[in-house]
Simulated assay, not measured.
Amino acid sequence: MRRDRQVLVFDADDTLWENNIRFERAIEAFLDQVVPPAPDRAAARAALDVIEAANAATHGYGAQVFLRSLGECFEQLHRRPATAAELAGFAALAATITTAEVELLPGVAETLASLAERHQLLLLTKGDRAEQQAKVDASGLAGLFAAVHIVPEKDVVVYRRLAEQHTLTPERTWMVGNSPKSDILPARLAGLNAVFIPHQHTWVLENDAELDPHDGGVLQLAAFAELGEHF
């Protein structure tokens, strides 16, 4: 049965449009350049993951932080700073993340338009404000949301603040996203319901938390379009 008159809060990256696959492609190209002197490709990727996690905690997200991580990883693997030419190559890889057109995931545009007729929709995305706003603008979806929130991080405090700001009723509010770490678990800790829609290219650092299979407040769907069957 469809739930009527709910508040649906949507994640953006890898929930509404493709995002991490761009990073993965850039990383593969980076590894093509740095692996020969490294022990092996898996070890190089593991080193980059550790560096990205540290930089995300300190500097946040986005292309510039990603570029910083590439440079630090290169220096760690090669035991020397990258040259100007090498840094320029890394910058070109990082630029591919922000220059490509926004690619909506299947069923997103039509499903959101239908949901907006019956529910209040909000957008909550984290990352670099300018980069995220550019994607929101390019997506053509902004007009479907009652409000768009771009935050540095998504944790339980952010969800509680969102609920207070919009006077949300927790039992009628659902966070929809692909990340257990940023979308599902902190929303549940804040007392909200959640809809988990896995994405095969979810960033490893966003996918390293496990959901409780017995949590009745989490609805798991296989595809975005299935939202229309429940809301």
Rank of each mutant, 00 (worst) to 15 (best):
V102H: 10
G71S: 10
A134R: 14
A63D: 03
S182E: 07
H214Y: 14
N193I: 02
T99K: 05
T202K: 01
I97V: 14
G217T: 09
A113L: 06
G107P: 05
E101G: 11
Y159K: 06
H119G: 04
K154H: 05
Q76A: 13
L185A: 10
L77M: 05
F74C: 07
L115R: 13
E110N: 05
R3H: 04
P37K: 01
L192T: 03
R68V: 00
I184E: 06
A12Y: 02
H59S: 04
I51H: 03
P213A: 11
L93V: 00
R2K: 15
G71K: 02
V50S: 10
L162N: 09
A42H: 13
A56V: 11
T202I: 10
F231T: 12
Q6P: 00
A43W: 11
R188Q: 06
A113G: 10
S114T: 14
A142C: 11
G191H: 04
L104V: 10
F90S: 00
A130I: 10
L112H: 01
R129Q: 09
F23V: 08
I27T: 12
K135Y: 02
D208E: 11
K135L: 01
V157Y: 05
D13C: 06
I150V: 15
R160W: 07
Q33C: 04
T169F: 14
P81G: 12
L105K: 13
L48S: 08
Q120K: 09
A56E: 09
L192R: 00
V158G: 04
W174Q: 01
V156E: 15
L115C: 13
L211N: 06
I21D: 06
E101R: 14
E153I: 08
W17S: 10
A92I: 01
V7P: 01
T111E: 03
F145L: 14
G127E: 00
Q220V: 14
Q165C: 11
N19H: 12
P37D: 03
A44Q: 04
